[in-house]
Design a protein around this nucleic acid. Structure first.
Length: 258
DNA sequence: TTGTGTTTTACGACCTC
DNA sequence: GAGGTCGTAAAACACAA
């Protein structure tokens, strides 16, 4: 990661700021030495490459190019830049020049500051989007788990009802009008619904449904208001306990995070 | 004081208009 | 060609040990 060392110089005698970039790390004297001048919007006045390691220690050069640390902008400068960024996060040339003049900075510094500020803003946006998606996902997950539990509960109830009916069928052969011809329909592979196919027994099932079905629950497929004929399709095909579009398998949700 | 993680400033490469 | 994004280096800074 650390590809080299930078020695930064500043020309105090002119507005041109010069940076000496020492590439390659290790002893700077023996590496590729390339002074890079950044001045008025990347001044073209570049100092040539050093031709020998000794040149880096030339007194004249240091007299001319005093060492400079990378300076942070003052809080006042940052404040003004922030205010300007809030107004418009893109920088037209006139605005850039004006800001630079007002802040005592190079136009290039203002441009760079805006570039970096946009990058930070974008990162922040991404973080916020992630948080929103994550909480939405977590909430869906809770709903999903709740529905799975409901479904499990329903299946148990159905099973229990069937057993009751079977017992009644055996013990009440003299009662007319109650003919059991039921079974638990196959569930969907995704923890889908359980449906009882009954003939003449809907009232028994109806009597217990309020105990576990939420208000407005789409359970018409489970218990119809009237007797079914033999031709009625009472399988659970297409009858999920999830409203349309709500159900998602856990593995199907992974795309959200990939 | 020192080691380490984070933020800020600055640049080069590449892309778009 | 100007100005944008993206990735990264390195200085500056914050902070725990």
């Amino acid at each position: 990661m650390d590809t080299g060392r930078h020695l930064i110089f500043d020309s105090s005698s002119s507005s041109t700021r010069a940076r000496l970039v020492v590439l390659g790390g290790g002893n700077p004297v023996f590496r590729g030495l390339r002074p890079v001048v950044v001045g008025e919007e990347r001044s073209t006045a570049k100092r040539p490459f050093f031709t020998s390691p000794d040149e880096i220690y030339e007194d004249e050069y240091y007299e001319e190019q005093l060492p400079e640390k990378k300076r942070r902008l003052t809080p006042e400068q940052v404040h003004l830049l922030e205010r300007s960024f809030e107004e418009e996060n893109k920088l037209e040339p006139e605005r850039k020049s004006e800001l630079a003049r007002n802040l005592g900075l190079q136009p290039r510094q203002v441009a760079v500051w805006f570039q970096n500020r946009r990058a930070r803003w974008k990162n922040k946006q991404l973080e916020q989007d992630f948080d929103r998606l994550k909480s939405s996902y977590d909430s869906l997950l809770v709903d999903h788990d709740t529905l799975l539990k409901d479904n499990e509960h329903l299946q148990l109830e159905v099973k229990s009802l069937i057993e009751k009916l079977q017992a009644q069928e055996q013990g009440a052969s003299g009662i007319t009008g109650l003919k059991l011809d039921g079974h638990v329909a196959s569930s969907t592979g995704s923890g889908g619904s359980a449906v009882v196919e009954l003939e003449g027994a809907n009232q028994l099932v109806e009597s217990s449904r309020d105990s576990y079905l939420p208000d407005g629950y789409p359970c018409e497929r489970l218990v119809h208001g009237e007797m079914h004929s033999e031709e009625d399709d009472l399988s659970d095909e297409g009858c999920s306990y999830y409203p349309n579009g709500m159900f998602m398998e856990h593995q199907d949700q992974e795309w959200l995070w990939n």
